[in-house]
Amino acid sequence: MIRLTINFIVSVIIGSLLVSILSTQIVLASVSEFGIAVDISTRLSSTYKDILGFGPTVLGITFVAYLVFFTINHLLAKLIGNKGNWVYLLGSVAIPSVLIIMNSIFGLTVVASTNSLAGWFFNVLASFCGSLYFYQQSK
């Protein structure tokens, strides 16, 4: 149980970090499109600022997302009797699903990266990576 909890916490941190880091790159890409050059120092400081400023929000989102989806996965596995690779599919949509629900509740995009297809792709990727860690470590 302790091992499972630690794996869960680490997976939340991985997913959150990736969402934050990748979201920053999406925002900086937009800024570059406006004709403003983003040097490496600005990129690094922006990424760091977002981890500090945006990180807590993403941590909360990821925690809820993984808690719900890993639980669903666990219940489904009991029902079906075999986890299989669909585990990773569920993990990939965990964070994006919560973001979709939040956007619907608030009536606008809560996280700017979800304004673009690339942003949604990165959110799926981040969600997948965090859940991949959890399931690999929990085997």
Binding site: D50, T57, V111
Partner: peptide, 9 residues
């Protein structure tokens, strides 16, 4: 941004 993220550096 309201979620704590940067909008522009």
């Amino acid at each position: 941004d309201y979620n704590g993220s940067i909008i522009s550096p």
